[in-house]
Measured scan of single mutants.
Amino acid sequence: VTLFVALYDYEARTEDDLSFHKGEKFQILNSSEGDWWEARSLTTGETGYIPSNYAAPV
Rank of each mutant, 00 (worst) to 15 (best):
V1M: 13
V1D: 14
V1I: 13
V1W: 13
V1K: 13
T2N: 12
T2C: 15
T2M: 13
T2R: 13
T2V: 13
T2E: 13
L3Q: 08
L3K: 05
L3H: 10
L3N: 06
F4G: 04
F4I: 08
F4L: 08
F4M: 11
F4E: 01
V5P: 01
V5T: 06
V5A: 05
A6G: 04
L7A: 03
L7H: 03
L7Q: 05
L7S: 03
Y8E: 08
Y8A: 09
Y8P: 00
Y8K: 07
Y8T: 06
D9P: 06
D9N: 07
D9R: 03
D9V: 04
D9A: 06
D9Y: 04
D9M: 03
Y10I: 02
Y10N: 02
Y10K: 01
Y10E: 01
Y10V: 01
E11A: 09
E11T: 12
E11L: 10
A12V: 02
A12G: 12
A12M: 04
R13W: 07
R13L: 11
R13E: 10
R13A: 11
R13M: 12
T14M: 11
T14I: 06
E15C: 14
E15W: 09
E15S: 13
D16T: 15
D16I: 13
D16H: 15
D16S: 15
D16K: 15
D16L: 14
D17C: 15
D17V: 14
L18S: 01
L18T: 02
L18K: 01
L18P: 01
L18W: 05
S19A: 06
F20H: 00
F20T: 02
F20W: 01
F20R: 00
F20P: 00
H21K: 15
K22H: 06
K22L: 06
K22R: 10
K22Y: 05
K22T: 07
K22E: 07
E24M: 05
E24K: 00
E24A: 05
E24I: 03
K25E: 09
K25M: 15
K25T: 11
K25G: 05
F26S: 00
F26M: 07
Q27H: 13
Q27A: 09
Q27E: 15
Q27Y: 14
Q27N: 07
Q27F: 14
I28W: 02
I28Q: 00
I28V: 09
I28S: 01
I28A: 02
L29T: 06
L29Y: 07
L29P: 05
L29F: 08
L29E: 05
L29S: 06
N30D: 13
N30F: 07
N30H: 08
S31G: 10
S31Q: 14
S32T: 13
S32Q: 12
S32N: 11
E33A: 13
E33T: 12
E33H: 13
E33P: 12
G34I: 10
G34A: 13
G34S: 13
G34C: 12
G34E: 11
D35F: 13
W36F: 11
W36V: 07
W37D: 00
W37L: 11
W37S: 02
W37R: 02
E38Y: 15
A39S: 03
A39L: 01
A39N: 00
A39P: 00
A39Q: 00
R40K: 12
R40Y: 10
S41Q: 05
S41E: 02
L42T: 06
L42H: 05
L42S: 04
L42M: 13
L42P: 02
T43I: 09
T43K: 13
T43Q: 09
T44W: 02
T44P: 01
T44E: 01
T44K: 03
G45H: 06
G45N: 08
G45L: 06
G45D: 05
G45F: 08
E46P: 01
E46V: 10
T47D: 04
T47A: 07
T47W: 09
G48L: 02
G48Q: 00
G48K: 03
G48A: 03
Y49P: 01
Y49E: 01
Y49F: 13
Y49T: 07
Y49K: 14
Y49A: 05
I50A: 00
I50N: 01
I50F: 04
I50C: 02
I50K: 01
I50Y: 02
P51A: 03
P51H: 07
P51K: 06
P51M: 06
P51S: 05
P51Q: 05
S52A: 15
S52I: 11
S52W: 11
N53V: 08
N53M: 11
N53C: 14
Y54F: 11
Y54H: 09
Y54D: 02
Y54Q: 05
Y54C: 11
Y54A: 15
Y54L: 11
A55T: 12
A55D: 03
A55W: 05
A56P: 03
A56T: 10
A56S: 10
A56R: 08
A56M: 10
P57V: 07
P57M: 08
P57A: 09
V58A: 09
V58F: 10
V58H: 07
